[in-house]
Amino acid sequence: MARQPKEYVRLPGRGQKVVGVLSAGRTSLWLGNDHLLHVSDQWFTETYKRFYFRDIQAIMLRKTRAGKIINLVCGLVALLVFLFPLAGKLYWAWDAAGMIVGGCFGGFFLLIVVVNSLMGPTSSCKLKTAVQSEELPSLARLWRARKVLRILRARIDAEQGVLSQEEIASNREAILAAGALGAGNPLKAAGPPELMRHCDDRFHAAMLYILLFDGVLTIINIFIQNKLIDAISACVLLGGITCMTTALFKQQRSDLPSGLKNLTWATLAYTVAFMIVAIGYGVILALENPGKIGTQLSPFDHPVIMAMDLVSAICDFSIGGCGVYLLQKFRRESAAPDAQP
């Protein structure tokens, strides 16, 4: 007896559907006769969404930075985990067992970096029909997404025909003349597209000026070790973190230039990395010099403290300086259209 052909063929890729920070099940894509089946598998339940080839309007593929961020975070953790047993060996004469354990943990994070790098750049893919726009989490790697899109495009083209660039250009005027999509499509008739929110950049400004002030404090701290300076530094750090967090929230889906947005993220990465290194080294110093607070130690006697202070000051000035320049530029550009008659 002839075996019945399978109704669905699996497409490459498997992803996690994420809601907030929690996983809402694994997802995969399956190719049917006339539709694409999106399967979301959570515990004992499978949820299906069908996208008929004749209804698919567009597919958007975007390169993301998730892979780079994973590499950065895991690389940093690996570096710290490798450095910790090394410091243990140097300062507390740890035996080989400590080194091996540290090495294993560091190796694990390094392995994540290697595997993640080998898997290639990350991507985000969205499929659009007339009534919905669906994220396809299983296409989270660029090479895999392109492979799947080639298959899908062939099927959709076979169902709908091919829309050439010339057709897009020629149809553009007709569509716009008919009142964009509003004339025929009740779902799009609501009005003009949503404009991007204007960003309240005061928190960005505060964060950047705090960074510059912190740079000045760090330079002073190299020459003068004072409890008042320590207290001011702590307040500045707290204020900076508050402003940075608020700025990160405020800049989402705003008209702020991408350079300034990236700079805010860079500030976060720098702050987190510096705090981890400073706290780690602070613990080592506290164990080495019982009874003395880390900041009371002169950087001229401890080259690591000197290096950390200098790196911190350079980062503060470079990020703060660039940020203030970009912010002023953004403010000038925002004000320019208002000045025109």
Binding site: R54, I56, Q57, M60, L61, Q160, V162, L163
Partner: peptide, 10 residues
Amino acid sequence: YQALVFPAIL
């Protein structure tokens, strides 16, 4: 980004 557009959009 890469945008694939199909006739259904018209």
